[in-house]
Computed example of a mutant assay.
Amino acid sequence: MLETSARLLRLLSLLQAHREWSGAGLAERLGVTPRTVRRDVDRLRELGYPVNASPGTGGGYQLGAGAELPPLLLDDDEAVAVAVGLRTAAGQGIEGIGETSVRALGKLEQVLPSRLRHRVGALNAFTVPMLRTPRAQGVDPAVLTELAGVCRDAERLRFEYRDHAGSATRRTVEPHRLVCTERRWYLVAWDLDREDWRTFRVDRVEPRPPHGPRFTPRPPPADDLAAYVAKGVSRGAYAEQAVVRLLVPRAEAAQRLTPSDGMLEAETDESCLLRTGASSLDVMVFHVLFLGIEFEVVEPVELIERIRTARDHLSRALDRGVASAGPPAPGRGPGA
């Protein structure tokens, strides 16, 4: 059995991780009796944490927002600074920090009193970040935290979704997980209308509350959701598929490519395979060229012909440019 102080911290962490717990569920997780849970909840309230309780067989405990900021060892200004920083990191898709920022932001905003929420909202509404991430790829942190909440609580989500052409459809899904890259965020969810797993770009999602009812989570479509989403966004959504051998080790290629460029597969110590997709073979030619890595085409054969056509087209353009330029002016040739 955990000591009281350690058990209180564990209890607080459990209350922050899920929207609502039954007394029996908390007792089982903590290895104590329901009576001990009730005493520990009272201790948390004495410390300033607003823990709500609902009676009855369907009742439970829920961490709510209080009139005052609970003792997190942060004053008001520090809490606002942390919340703004987390929102900025989450919205900019910084590699390796975005998902963590959303989880931390969800916990912090759950206990922020109203006056501090207003200050955070004002700072975000009237601040324009000059960061490297393109604005067109930005995601509203409020949408991210809302989606993270319905994933956590296993609640059905209704939203309006815009496709690449801007057409909007209404969708109802059972949300599973958020997956992020350094460029975009994706929601993996079970689409109730299509009865299949789907991946949605979060910047095209506009939630339509209220959410619910709750559902029993299904087994995920893959153990490695990052690879599942990478495959979908780099190949499955495109009409043309290709396999290209990159003449560098996989580790080096992984540092220079993103998941949206395709899926990498180790081959030898000096090469790897890239499985990728594009809307057409002509677009595929330039997609592969712009990777900036020496390569050779494995399949399809038609891509090799498109590369030859592009090479000949560029050669003719260069020849015409040299011919029209004429001989260099005196004093301005290569030896000048």
Rank of each mutant, 00 (worst) to 15 (best):
R208K: 04
Y161N: 09
G60I: 13
R184G: 04
L9I: 14
A254P: 11
L289I: 09
M284F: 06
L63V: 08
P300H: 04
V41S: 04
L157F: 07
R306F: 13
Y161I: 05
P71N: 03
R87D: 05
Q137N: 08
A254I: 06
E299N: 09
A278R: 07
L72K: 01
R19I: 04
R158T: 06
G166M: 14
R235W: 08
R119V: 15
P55M: 03
L291N: 00
L14F: 06
G138N: 14
E20P: 06
C272I: 03
S280H: 14
D77M: 04
D223R: 04
G331Q: 06
I94A: 11
S260V: 10
G331I: 01
M263E: 15
R45Q: 15
A253W: 00
L30I: 11
S234T: 12
P113R: 02
A317Y: 11
L86C: 05
R256D: 07
A24Y: 11
V248C: 00
D269R: 01
P207C: 05
N52F: 14
R208W: 11
S279D: 15
H164D: 05
V202F: 01
D312L: 10
V322N: 09
G149S: 15
V297F: 00
V102Y: 01
L14Q: 13
L12M: 10
V288N: 01
L147H: 02
V32F: 08
P334K: 07
L123D: 05
G212W: 04
G85T: 06
P213K: 08
L264N: 11
A81D: 15
L105R: 14
A317H: 14
L289C: 10
L257Q: 03
A154N: 09
E155Q: 07
D40W: 13
Q137C: 08
M130I: 10
I307S: 03
P327K: 14
R156P: 04
L112S: 00
F215E: 00
G326H: 11
G321A: 01
T36E: 08
R87C: 05
L318C: 10
L12N: 00
L112C: 09
R45G: 12
R158M: 01
A53R: 06
L63N: 10
P217Y: 04
T100P: 03
R19V: 07
N124S: 02
A104S: 15
P50D: 07
E302F: 12
S324I: 13
V41T: 04
E299G: 09
G93F: 14
P55K: 15
N52A: 15
L187C: 02
P207R: 01
L274K: 03
L30F: 07
M263Y: 08
G277A: 06
A336Q: 09
Y186A: 01
E267I: 10
T127P: 07
L8T: 06
V202R: 00
P55A: 00
P55H: 09
N124M: 02
E160G: 08
M284Y: 05
E109H: 10
A336V: 08
V248Q: 00
R87F: 02
P249N: 00
G277S: 02
V173Q: 02
A89E: 09
P50N: 13
A222D: 15
A104K: 14
V297H: 01
D261L: 05
T127D: 07
